[in-house]
């Protein structure tokens, strides 16, 4: 393509955007609104999965050691646990340490534990705290560890962990489904709106065909127009999301401090790439598809 043609196409596209002002605004609004909903949802989804990751990270297996076990068995257990490929973290907690923790947890009422502190009176057991690389593996790993030598009993919060994982799984699927649905709606709405702008100009396209313009010559300005509309439609929600998200994180850190949101700098680059490329793809595709119908003269 010549530079001259390129400039012409771009000029025509820009002229058309300005000339069909209301139609352009409508197209940009449709792109903006759909991308705004999509973008907000992505932001929410990010944070929900961050939150659930956080919760899942806290899930652990506690292996209480059999008090009767001899030193050799314990060494074997130690090796078996550290060599386990699915375990990310293996931490030994002595019964003294466990007692300290318990005291801390009881706070003011720690005096109740008085008398249990001495070495031979401590009712607690030595234990290992295990964390799996993939949180969802915890149940299976807990069952295998159960059979290791020197293991008294294993606690992984059964009855609590299962529904938690089910819940986070459902949340993730709902999120994906919702986003897919929104994306499809966006394509549909945008291609229809752009079809309308092309429809308004069908006479122009017909004349172009009669005076011998090639199909690509007719198509390019529309493609550029779609590009401009798509880009503008993506910038609007990006700006809105940026400022409202920034506000939200600030408000949350001041008021609901126990839920931490992803910082805005971390979310924006990904969102920027995604929404801009979506806007461009939607705009260009919408135009190209719409103009095709009118080229058959």
């Amino acid at each position: 393509m010549h530079v001259r043609s390129l400039l012409y196409f771009f000029g025509e596209a820009l002229k058309s955007v300005i000339h069909h002002g209301w139609m352009s605004i409508a197209s940009i609004a449709v792109v903006s609104i759909t991308l705004l909903i999509l973008g907000s949802f992505i932001v929410i989804n990010y944070n929900v999965s961050l939150l659930t990751e956080d919760i899942k990270e806290q899930v652990q297996i506690v292996v209480y050691i059999d008090e009767e076990a001899n030193v050799r068995t314990l060494r074997e257990l130690q090796r078996a646990l550290t060599d386990h490929p699915e375990l990310e973290e293996v931490r030994f907690v002595s019964k003294e340490e466990a007692m300290e923790r318990l005291k801390r947890q009881m706070g003011d009422r720690a005096f109740l534990l008085e008398g249990y502190e001495e070495e031979d009176k401590n009712p607690l057991r030595d234990s290992y705290e295990l964390r799996t690389t993939v949180p969802e593996d915890i149940i299976r790993v807990a069952h295998t560890v159960q059979d290791y030598p020197g293991v008294g009993y294993v606690d992984y919060g059964s009855g609590v962990v299962e529904p938690l994982f089910q819940f986070t799984g459902v949340i993730r699927w709902i999120g994906l489904l919702f986003m897919a649905g929104l994306a499809i709606t966006a394509v549909f709405l945008i291609s229809h709106t752009i079809r309308l702008t092309v429809y308004i100009r069908r006479k122009e396209i017909m004349i172009m065909k009669y005076v011998g313009a090639t199909d690509w010559f007719i198509r390019w300005p529309f493609i550029f127009e779609g590009l401009i509309l798509g880009l503008m439609g993506a910038v609007v929600p990006l700006v809105i999301i940026f400022y409202s998200y920034q506000g939200a994180t600030q408000w949350m850190s001041g008021n609901i401090y126990f839920i931490s949101l992803l910082p805005v700098e971390e979310i924006m680059p990904q969102l920027l790439n995604l929404l801009l490329s979506l806007g461009v793809v939607l705009g260009v595709l919408g135009s190209a598809i719409s103009v095709r119908k009118f080229l058959k003269v």
Binding site: K209, V211, G212, A213, T214, D215
Partner: peptide, 12 residues
Amino acid sequence: REVPYLRRNIGM
């Protein structure tokens, strides 16, 4: 794809 060039030689 040659049709446009035909039409350039015909004024309507």
